[in-house]
Each structure stands twice: as structure tokens, then as C-alpha cells.
Simulated scan of single mutants.
Amino acid sequence: QVFLSVTSILSVAVFKDHFVLEDLVEEMKKQSTALSFGPLQSNGQIAVQGSFPALTVLRDFLLLKAESLSEKDKREERKSHQGPRRRPQEHRGVTEKRNSVRDADGEKQVVVLDTDTYHYMRYFFPGTFQVNGVVISDSIEGDITTVCIEKAGRRVDAAHVLRAKKIIENGSIQLHKTLRKERIFFQEHTRAEKQRYKWACERLKPRYPDVLIIPYDTHIDVIGTSSKIFEFTKEVSG
């Protein structure tokens, strides 16, 4: 399965109470020059087209903005006794400044990865997710995995978080260029059939050390370079 370009429909309506959406879209375009943007719809949706790594970078950018606004809302709610809450767009310059400061602090960063790439990195490059001074957690939802990177303690320099994020991003981008996936579906859906495939995979594994095998109830996913997984699946199914 090869996807050179992906089209995604994003909704930025959640930001309408905090930003002028047209200005936010312009900021998104500057942030992600490799992507193509469609017109902003009245309901806050916009079509974005480009490579998966470029889309994940854009999603990281929007997640950080949403998280920053959420934290700001919580702080303002605690201070509500001081006076009526003002809408953020009335002080848009201040709001954007606070967002940039929080991002610069780097206490928490989020990276969105293709799940297949994430599994491959976890298996073959576990050190990518073992960086001193940070705590790394994940949330897997179908084809998308969200990786959260946080400081392990108050005395830890925020640079550790940013460095860990950069390591993960760079590694995932390089792998995304070369990794492909083949899916072997079970035909009979019996225990005997699954066992046959399991034995076949285990027998071939030493000859294909760079191929990742992930068994499921209905199929087996094989992840690796295109040439290797083609040869592997051919032998398993042969």
C-alpha cells in the first residue's frame, strides 16, 4: 500500500471563539508550505492535501494551539471572580503571545504518527522513545498514533522534550518514505490455519530480520521495505 498524497478534511471551527479563522488558515499555510489548501467553508471545514508526514506536522501544530487555549481557559475560569471574562479575540495579540510562550516552554509536546510506522519504530528502534529526562506515552486510534512527550520532573530542561520530539519526527519521516505494508488475510479463519501462518512467519523471520510481523484475528500485517515484504508474503502464501 503506497500513499504519495492524502486528502484530509479538517475542521477549525473549534477555534472560532479565539481566532479569526481566515487568519488561522493563513498561519497554517505558512506553517505547512508543502500542503495544498482548499477554500475555507462557512462551517469551518477546509480540505488539505499532501503527504502524510506533512499532514501530521500540521495536526501537531493545531493540537498544540488547542491545548494552549484549553489551559488558558482553565486559568481564566479560576480568575473569573475578578471580573467578567473577555472573549479572546478582543485581545488577539495577547492570546497569540501566550500561545507562543507556552509552545516555547516545551513542557509538553505531541507528535502524530502513522500507526504502522510507530509500531515499526517501537520494535526496531526502541531507543527513539527512551530519552533521558522525558516521559513518553502513546494513544493508538486506528491508523493514527498520538505520542505525548513530557518533562520527567520540574528540574528537567524543556530542551529535552523538544529534542525527543525532533528525534521521533525525523525518524518517522525517514521510515515513512521507505516502509510499505502488505496484509495477509486468513481464508478459513480456523485455529489450524492461523497456526500454519504463524509457523511460516517464524520460519522465515531469520531470513527477513528487518520485516515486522503483526498478527491479528483476521489477518497478518507485514511491514518493511517494498522488496522485502513482497518476497516475504510470497513465500508465506506460497
Rank of each mutant, 00 (worst) to 15 (best):
F124L: 01
Y208L: 14
L35W: 06
D138C: 01
A200Y: 10
A54R: 02
E202L: 11
P39Q: 05
S68C: 12
L55T: 00
Y118S: 00
K79Q: 13
S237H: 09
R191Q: 15
E77C: 11
E67R: 15
V6Y: 07
T145E: 03
R191F: 11
A200E: 13
P126E: 00
P53L: 01
A192E: 11
R183Q: 14
G93A: 11
K228R: 14
M28D: 01
R203I: 15
K74Y: 00
D105A: 14
D103H: 08
L10Y: 09
K30F: 14
P88Q: 03
V211Q: 09
H91C: 09
K181R: 10
K65D: 11
I223Q: 13
K181V: 05
Y197K: 12
L55Q: 07
V111P: 01
D210Q: 07
F125C: 04
I136S: 03
S36V: 14
P209N: 07
Q89R: 03
R122L: 15
R98G: 09
L69Y: 07
A152Y: 03
D17P: 02
P206M: 09
R78N: 05
A159H: 13
S51W: 07
Q41F: 12
V222L: 09
N43Y: 10
Q45V: 04
G93R: 05
A200M: 14
L175E: 00
H219K: 04
K181L: 05
F185D: 02
P84A: 11
S68L: 03
V101Q: 12
I223C: 09
I9D: 06
T7S: 08
Q45G: 01
D103C: 13
M121E: 01
G238W: 11
R75H: 09
K177G: 03
C201P: 14
F185E: 04
T146E: 06
E96V: 07
D221E: 10
K205Q: 12
N99E: 15
H81W: 15
L212I: 06
K165R: 12
R180V: 11
E67W: 10
K97V: 01
A54L: 08
F129D: 00
R102I: 05
K194T: 05
S70A: 15
T33D: 04
N43R: 12
L63Y: 11
S237V: 12
Y197L: 05
E107H: 11
V94D: 12
E188M: 15
N43Q: 09
P84D: 13
H189C: 08
A34G: 04
R87W: 03
M28R: 03
Q89I: 12
P88H: 09
G142Q: 13
E77L: 15
I220A: 09
R191E: 15
D105I: 06
V134M: 05
K177Y: 07
E235P: 02
N132E: 14
Q1E: 10
I144R: 14
S80R: 14
S80C: 05
S5L: 10
D138N: 04
E77V: 05
R180L: 08
L35P: 02
H189F: 14
F124C: 00
S100P: 10
G93N: 05
